[in-house]
Design a protein around this nucleic acid. Structure first.
Lengths: 362, 362
DNA sequence: GCTCCTGATGGAAACGATTTCACCTTAGCT
DNA sequence: AGCTAAGGTGAAATCGTTTCCATCAGGAGC
């Protein structure tokens, strides 16, 4: 028994496919009587409009495409779920593509989504200032919004102010008594955010008259950063604080430091970026910049949908959402510089005294 | 300037659309000369086959649909990337749908993917034994493989042996001297895995003649489990080990215990399930059952693709992948009973000295 | 009574590909 | 030479919808 088509519904309702289509998709004028007959027929046959035929004819698919570097970083997973929420509220579905921090795959995936006639494209790209994927979208006329990327004006985006946020981190580290700072970055080529955060850190340190930051670039592909960290300490032995370009990296760095026999935060403080949930669960808890991740996805999709509803393209400018520095045990003394000043040097990782939380409810 | 269609390519190559199609998609016989002219024309025009027209006509879209409860748990994110790897190797793309542990959304999303003519469906469902989504797939003739779910026979799946793995955990806990075990579960209604792991734990304890496990069900939606844990300790104050149905939950539980003033593993040991990367980075490191997550996605997609290549449906049985217990600091003494014996007494409800196991491996 | 407009409808042409079928060559055999 | 088989090709049907256009009925306005 074949899947019913709109022609079957029309036949059963005693009308033409044209009328059935109008009744089902709310296109043109249909008499109340016809609408009822069509609805009844559709229900009786268990009919559902075929998204393919529909997309082919209408030129859009009723889906929002999402392009993200990876699902492995919960930041993107959350943002995608944010997009999904906004899309679902507007009756759209979501098509996800992951491109693994690879600019070529980025462009290819964008084209694939565009070919599928997505109504809009929400993307996080390697470099917003020079992105083939953005070009493709623009050229094809597909409305497009970036998320996480903080692009030069001219392209729609939802992000936080990465430089300012990095400045806040610099300030917190200095306030905690740290003086020799390092920045651990995912490769700059694959993340403009990472670069902006480094710039923000460097600028804030310069302004405060502090020593400029040491830089280590690592690959997101690696999980073990001991070698990179060891090299850093060989170069700059007295580093006392590391700002990592994202939280997952920060957690890996903390583990790496522990493996190298350096305690966090006693020997080296570590601060992340993003505010992923798991960062608050670890010990030491992760000091970080909390960003409204899911909200970023929701907002990006929202911009697209609002513009679509009004038949205009989305505003070509960045919507900057608020961020917030969250103190954590990995930057001891953010609220108590004295502790930081009295860091003790310890020979082994394992026996660092862990501070227990004295918080409890009631 | 319109997007070129296959007719434009054909015109430029001096042949009919039929021949152009055969040349581009490798359908029937085409002369070498024609193929070259078509290829050249397509390249010159920047032509790409339209996935929509193609899918409509062929009845399949060249995409694999993936249905997962959530992206928030990295386990699913990794598995999806596994599916993506296998799909990409076969020249297919992936359509992802997240349904938030909701059986109704599960069925609806499955239908939406089927409507899009996915070549196959890889799903993780709430309850494999009674899943509307699986029904829909079967009814529509869409090949379908479950992942993570360990279903009764009759449906294709890739999973680990949840009961056996839970048995391993029981054994490790007993070996570490723990005697009063609890199980912290995501709600059973939304995860058959969780239920199977509980059953495995209970069975192993029964066989070992040990006290049956206490059970706490919590919602995945919550992040703060203090209330649930406090209630558990009110009921069973001397619990000394908690098996959590997955790693993310375990990390949250460890944080909750810390907030309640119980130390891990001194007062209470915690073991998770899945082997997510971040579990190895925390302190204490998380003892857990490591499962081949990405491999599960790859294998599930692989089963579908292999079957498709041979024109038969995938074998209706579960492919059980190996799991491995990974000791961690959150279950002290799994490898070093002495440490366990000397757990220090703390002024909290967990203070009773517990008998330790005299057995040790190695 | 006549025109004009509006609302409801159906026929048929899109949308962009694939595939069936029939046709024509040409090569290979006897 | 005659016959068959196979390779190459194109016209046209098809997938399932939407939408343009024409048609028609009926009411309003003159």
């Amino acid at each position: 028994m074949r899947r019913p088509t709109i022609a079957d519904v029309a036949a059963r309702a005693g009308c033409s496919p044209a009328t059935a289509s109008r009744a089902l998709s709310g296109g043109g004028p249909v008499s109340e009587a016809a609408r009822l007959r069509v609805d009844a027929a559709a229900r009786a046959l268990g009919f559902r409009l075929d998204p393919l035929g529909r997309a082919l004819r209408r030129g859009r698919s009723g889906a929002i495409g999402v392009l993200a570097p990876s699902l492995a970083n919960p930041v993107f997973a959350e943002a995608i779920e944010g997009v999904e929420v906004a899309a679902a509220a507007a009756g759209l579905t979501v098509l996800v593509a992951c491109v693994g921090y690879d600019a070529a795959r980025e462009a290819a995936a964008a084209e694939a989504l565009i070919d599928r006639r997505v109504d809009g494209l929400v993307m996080t790209v390697a470099d917003a200032a020079a992105s083939l994927a953005v070009d493709r979208a623009r050229r094809s006329g597909t409305p497009c919004a970036l998320m996480f990327n903080q692009p030069p004006d001219g392209v729609t985006a939802v992000c936080v102010d990465n430089r300012a946020a990095a400045g806040d981190v610099a300030e917190a580290m200095l306030a905690a008594g740290r003086r020799r700072l390092g920045f651990v970055a995912g490769r700059f080529a694959t993340s403009d955010r990472s670069r902006q955060r480094f710039e923000g850190l460097a600028a804030a340190l310069a302004e405060a008259g502090a020593r400029p930051p040491e830089l280590v670039e690592v690959s997101y592909a690696d999980h073990d950063h001991r070698a990179a960290l060891a090299a850093l300490f060989a170069r700059a032995p007295r580093i006392d604080a590391l700002f990592c370009s994202n939280d997952m990296l920060a957690l890996a760095v903390i583990a790496g430091l522990r493996a190298l026999g350096r305690s966090v935060p006693d020997d080296v403080a570590v601060v992340g970026f993003d505010g992923v949930a798991v960062g608050a669960l670890t010990q030491p808890s992760l000091a970080t910049v909390v960003t409204p991740t899911a909200e970023m996805g929701r907002a990006a999709a929202g911009l697209l949908l609002a513009a679509r509803a009004q038949g205009r393209p989305p505003a070509p400018e960045a919507l900057i959402l608020p961020h917030q520095f969250r103190p954590g045990e990995s930057l001891a003394g953010a609220a108590d510089p004295d502790t930081a000043r009295q860091r003790q040097v310890r020979p082994s990782p394992g026996k660092a005294l862990r501070q227990t939380s004295e918080e409890s409810e009631t």
